[in-house]
Structure formats: C-alpha cells, structure tokens
Amino acid sequence: MNHLVAFDRLLTIMDELREKCPWDKKQTMESLRHLTIEETYELSDAILEGDLVEIRKELGDIMLHLVFYAKIGSEKEAFDISEVLHGICDKLVSRHPHIYGDVKVENEEEVKQNWEKLKLKEKGNKSVLGGVPKSLPALVKAMRIQEKARGIGFDWEEKSQVWAKVEEEMQEFKEQFDTEKSEAIDVKEAEAEFGDVLFSLVNYARFIDINPETALERTNKKFIKRFQYLESKAKDLGKELSDMTLVEMDVFWEEAKKA
C-alpha cells in the first residue's frame, strides 16, 4: 500500500474518532501523556525481545498517539500534522550540514559533535545540558548527560581512565561502611557515593559501547525468567517458596540458568 494512502487513512480515522467517539472526544494532551509513555515502554519491550510482529503493532500505537497530539494541536490552532512533519524535516536538514551543506566530517563522532553544537545554537540553551529532559529515568539521564558533555569535548580520553574512576568511586563508597557490621556510617553520604559509583559505571559502559539501560533491563528479564522457573518447580512439589530453604531454592535456580 502506498505510504501516503496509509497515512491519510490514519488521519481520516483520527478525525472521525475525535468527532464521534465519546472516549476520543474527551482526551487531552495531558490525559494521553501517561498512555504514550506506557506505549513507548511496550515498544521497548518488543525491541528487547526481538519480536518484529509486536514491534510493528507498537509502532502503530505510537503513531496513533502522535497523530492524536497533532489533531489536538490543530483544534487549538497551535499546529497541525503538516507543520509537525515539516518541522522535523527542516531540523534534519539543518543538523546534517555534511549531507545538505558543505561541511566535511571524518566519522560518526564528528557527526554527533556537530549535532550537539547545532542543537545548542538552535535552542539557545545557556547550558549544554539544558536539553536533557528533567523527567528522564536516572539511568538514561546519566547516559544523556555524559553524551552531551562528550559532544563539546568534555570527556575521558581512554577507557582505562574511566575504569580507574570506577574503582576509585567504589573504594569511596566502601569507606562509608563498617565492613564488619555492613551498616552505613552516614546514610546520606553513602547514598551520594553509591550514586557516584553508578554514574561512573554508566560512563564506562558508554566507553565500551554498552547501553546501561538495555543491559540492566536484560538482567531484569533474566532474573524474572529464572525466578518464575523457581516458582514453577516449587508448585510442582506442592510447596510455597516461603516454605523452602535457600539450599533447596538454589538447586532450582542453578537449573534455571541452564533452561
């Protein structure tokens, strides 16, 4: 099917729903916001699972939300879908002077640096970090902060330096604890040092091309899968996990690793 025909069909359906459906008529940008966030996470899950069928479905859901926002924008006489699309096209052309202009770049890193410089100039931000959304999850935000700082040349030169910083921060964190009692000497200070450890680990992950958010989510999924295997085995024995010893549970946990 022609892309334009398919997109026009979606726009027409959106118009009809906004006019005739009680639920769609009631929605605002504010009421859609949390739903959009949920849909984005569902797309993220599908991507991590490598499920192309689900990815296609979730992209459709997100596309609907984008069209919905544009519809509401047009009702407010603020903007319409054409302005949204032309806006992103104009931005892409502006931020790719090595494609649509006479700027020369040697590699991907120079492209990213030019992008951040142009973005800073366009938005008029007083800080390079001004474009990092305040509501981003902390782990993602740490990554974006570091990437933006790198965009203007503020970064480590070698990954060995970054790992040395990780070890330094881990030592500082350890010093906040009584190693025998495993109790925080100063909870606030220990929390601050733990944050430094996480930030430095995110930094190192970036240097070895690992996305920390993706890495942690894969570990979350792995733990869930193994724990549910453990629950299943306990059920087969007619037991509750709370009635099993750690030694008994560990047998099934090791099995789960191989499953």
Rank of each mutant, 00 (worst) to 15 (best):
E172M: 06
I185N: 02
A190S: 09
E189C: 13
S200Q: 00
E168T: 01
E180A: 03
E189F: 02
F154W: 11
W156C: 06
M170A: 04
E168I: 03
E172K: 12
D196K: 12
F199D: 15
K148N: 15
I185L: 08
S200P: 05
V166C: 14
V197C: 14
A164V: 01
S182K: 14
E167I: 06
K159I: 01
F154V: 10
F177C: 02
W163Q: 12
K174Y: 09
D186F: 00
K148Q: 13
M170Q: 13
W163F: 14
K174P: 00
G153Q: 04
E183A: 09
W156R: 10
V187Y: 08
D196Q: 07
V197H: 04
V197D: 03
K159V: 04
W156G: 08
Q176S: 07
G151E: 01
V187M: 11
F194L: 14
F199H: 13
E168S: 04
V166D: 07
I152C: 02
E183Q: 09
R150V: 02
E183S: 05
K181G: 07
A192K: 15
S182T: 03
A192T: 10
E175P: 08
Q161Y: 09
G151D: 03
T179W: 15
G151I: 03
E180S: 02
Q176K: 10
E189T: 11
Q176W: 01
W163V: 13
E183P: 00
K148S: 15
F177P: 05
W156L: 10
E147R: 11
E147N: 10
T179F: 13
T179H: 12
A190L: 06
E157P: 02
E157S: 07
V162N: 08
F154Y: 14
K165F: 12
V166A: 09
F199N: 15
Q161W: 03
M170T: 11
I185W: 00
